[in-house]
Design a protein around this nucleic acid. Structure first.
Lengths: 187, 187
DNA sequence: CTACCTGCAAAAGTTTTGCCACTAC
DNA sequence: GTAGTGGCAAAACTTTTGCAGGTAG
């Protein structure tokens, strides 16, 4: 009786974020977020009580350049300090999400995945063969989304654009068998 | 100990699909899918064995103009014929999703919601105050998505665009307290 | 006839929570 | 000192599945 765990199994070289950009906006690369206290500072700003566990989780989040799920965050935190429980990780990501410090994503696979919101609005392209997530931004789309919402009589509060693509079969390591995904997507 | 059930509670006048359109594409309205055998026909086309339960569920799906979750589908099916179990509904939607007849969505709220794929590609605008989902299509966006994917070196297989908005506070019944959502969104 | 279905209840998997000791401020 | 925290284990929820009996084709 087993079913979940569909995208790249969390644990190792999984869903790495490839540095990318499509247009006029900011590019991202692995070296972009070196400050391990970034998230902690944000927490303090919002008046959160900083305990050892929170500081630890905040640091893990600050150093993440990918989109880890709770289990992965827990694993990374444990590696730094064993005095954390997964319940606390769950409570903390929920709290940080409510505070607007984290963004929750559902890329399929049955588990929520998180990333800090402090590096600008951007979108995701998911490689359906490998599960890798590539970030990009696009001002044109940004404007279009706003325009559409207004045309429908709404004020745009947020939006989500996800592209599911496949690298033309040739370059790069052989595409691993297409994993079954969960969560609304390709059409 | 209770937590899920965050968006509009399934059961009654919930997430109704408002007929809408933004641009050159097809508008939708409640009268658009009158054929109660639509899905069943698709099932047969794909060689599925048609049992009473499947026919029942197919009919419920054919008549749905919204994005019901499994529990809601089960409820509607039960109302027509008690000889169906929720396990079968789960099995059936999964099967139909694999066959490309249904599309699974995660609009937040912790439950997957479904809709038939046979009425064209479109996007969703979720009213964050009521949980209502409005469908729309936009050729401009369609083209942009394809262009972006190619710019990143991918062939676009599918894409998802979701707008989260709020109706300017005035017209319409008072916005019910903003429900906590689950699932990546506003930023 | 046979491969595929269904119901039921149990299990799996993720996320939340009651309770109580504990600690940041 | 006190409101907010963390750990643990149990609970809540959604979704899947083993099994045994049924049924479409």
């Amino acid at each position: 009786m087993r079913a979940r765990r569909l995208l790249a199994p969390p644990g190792t070289g999984e869903y790495l974020t490839a540095p990318m950009d499509t247009r006029t906006d900011t590019p991202r690369d692995a070296e972009e977020r070196p400050d391990p206290l970034r998230i902690e500072r944000l927490c303090i700003e919002r008046g959160l009580k900083m305990t050892g566990q929170r500081r630890l989780i905040a640091r893990v989040l600050s150093e993440a350049i990918d989109h880890p799920d709770v289990e992965e965050l827990y694993r990374r935190a444990l590696a730094l300090d064993a005095r954390v429980s997964i319940a606390t990780v769950y409570r903390t990501v929920r709290l940080l999400e409510e505070k607007g410090i984290l963004e929750r994503h559902d890329f399929g696979g049955g588990r929520a995945r998180y990333e800090a919101t402090d590096h600008g609005h951007h979108y995701h392209l998911i490689d359906i063969d490998t599960g890798k997530v590539i970030e990009f931004s696009d001002v044109q789309h940004e404007a279009l989304a706003k325009a559409i919402a207004e045309r429908l009589g709404f004020t745009l509060i947020g939006h989500r654009l996800e592209l599911f693509g496949r690298r033309p079969a040739d370059a790069e390591a052989a595409p691993r068998r297409g994993p079954r995904r969960r969560g609304g997507e390709p059409a």
